[in-house]
């Protein structure tokens, strides 16, 4: 049911881990629903210089986390904010419909990490990245 690309990222996830002195950290999801992800970013000159993730969840949750870190690495913060859930799914050659909304939270985690960075710097953020609920 998963595309080859999803399976490839699931089997060999990129950028796994934590960043000790991260500039921004974003967590979304809810373990009760079966998915929880945290993204850590290191920012220099407004560019995402390093990014890592940790995810508890299904194949889609892990693959989307891995994919979003690959997509965001080296991007400016504004560019990274433009990455949508759909972009992530498209780059993975699609997700099963039932996974589109439940396990496709990686873009939200990325945005939450960027918001966290901006907040720490005293910038105003819109704060639209509330944890999703189950199903």
């Amino acid at each position: 049911m998963y595309s080859d690309k999803v399976m490839e990222h699931f089997q060999n996830p990129r950028n796994v881990g934590e960043i000790e002195d991260a500039d921004g950290v974003g967590t979304v999801g809810n373990p009760t629903c079966g998915d929880l992800m945290t993204i850590y970013i290191k920012v220099k000159d407004n560019i995402i210089e390093d990014i890592k993730f940790k995810t508890f969840g299904c194949g889609a949750a892990i693959a989307t986390s891995s994919m979003v870190t690959e997509m965001a690495m080296g991007k400016t913060l504004d560019e990274a904010m433009e990455i949508t859930r759909n972009d992530v799914a498209e780059n993975l050659e699609g997700l099963p419909p039932v996974k589109m909304h439940c396990s496709n939270l990686a873009a939200d985690a990325l945005h939450a990490a960027i918001d966290n960075y901006r907040e720490k710097k005293g910038e105003k953020v819109e704060g639209t990245h509330i944890c999703s609920t189950c199903g």
Binding site: G34, V98, C134
Partner: peptide
Amino acid sequence: EGESLVLHLDSKGIAASTGSACSSKKLE
């Protein structure tokens, strides 16, 4: 999470299953 476990076991040649929501249609 169980679905991840089952998928990885599959790639090691073991067919098993899970009661995790993520493998069901109901998401519970």
